[in-house]
């Protein structure tokens, strides 16, 4: 799973029906900007955990949900620059 930062919502009116009404968020993973389905209701600026592959589909709703990256948790507090 990845630790990402939520940048802003992604608005896409013309999209496939499979996504239904779920919110999409633009998240930043290092220098890459990705799009994740928001299953927990995060706001821009949050540090979140994103899950990929088939787990992303179950986390987003059902086995047939067409997502390959889903936000599954909001981290309480996270310091990106602290050395682990």
């Amino acid at each position: 799973m990845k630790i990402c930062k939520v940048l802003k919502p992604l608005v896409s009116t013309n999209r496939i029906a499979g996504f239904g009404h779920k919110h999409l968020q633009v998240v930043q993973d290092g220098s890459a900007q990705l799009v994740a389905v928001d299953a927990v209701g995060s706001v821009p600026g949050d540090w979140v955990i994103c899950v990929g592959s088939s787990a992303a589909r179950e986390a987003a709703g059902s086995k047939e949900y067409p997502s390959d990256l889903t936000i599954v948790g909001i981290i309480d507090d996270w310091d990106p620059d602290a050395e682990r």
Binding site: G18, S54, R57, Y65, P66, D68
Partner: peptide, 9 residues
């Protein structure tokens, strides 16, 4: 959407 989820899309 990539991977097997792409097929479901």
């Amino acid at each position: 959407v990539s991977g097997s989820a792409g097929r479901l899309a």
